[in-house]
Amino acid sequence: MERLEKKGREVPADYLNRPELEPEGAFYFDAFFRLSPSRRVGFSEGPIPFEAIDAFARRWRIWGSEFDRFERMIRALDSEHLTKRSAGKDDPQNLTSMKDAAGLRALLQSVGSKGG
Rank of each mutant, 00 (worst) to 15 (best):
E20A: 11
A102M: 07
I48N: 04
W60A: 14
F43V: 12
E71Q: 05
R105Y: 00
F50R: 12
E80Y: 15
R58K: 12
M98K: 09
L16K: 11
Y28C: 05
W63P: 05
Q109V: 12
A76M: 11
K6Q: 10
D54W: 08
G42L: 07
P37A: 09
D30A: 15
F29A: 09
F70C: 07
F67T: 11
F27W: 01
R34D: 07
R105Q: 06
G46C: 04
R72Q: 08
P47T: 11
A31D: 03
P37G: 02
E66M: 06
K6C: 08
E5K: 15
E10V: 14
S36Q: 09
G25V: 00
P23S: 08
G103A: 09
R34C: 14
S44D: 11
S86A: 15
S110R: 13
R58D: 12
A52G: 02
S38T: 13
I48E: 01
L82W: 05
E10L: 13
K114Q: 10
F67S: 05
A101G: 14
E80H: 14
N17R: 15
L16S: 05
E22Y: 03
R3Q: 04
E45K: 15
S86V: 03
R75K: 14
R9Q: 14
E5H: 10
A106S: 13
P23Y: 02
A31S: 10
G103D: 01
L77H: 05
P12K: 06
L108E: 03
D68V: 13
A76H: 04
P12T: 10
D68Y: 04
G64V: 01
K89P: 02
A26P: 01
R75I: 12
G88I: 09
G88R: 07
R85F: 07
A102V: 07
F43I: 13
R69Q: 14
S110D: 01
R72S: 14
G42Q: 07
S97C: 02
R61A: 15
A102H: 03
P19R: 03
E2D: 10
D91C: 10
P47A: 08
F43H: 09
Q109M: 03
I74H: 03
V111R: 02
G25Y: 00
K99G: 07
L16Q: 11
E24S: 03
L21V: 00
D100W: 04
R58M: 06
F27A: 11
G8M: 02
A101R: 10
G112R: 06
F33W: 02
A57T: 07
V111Y: 00
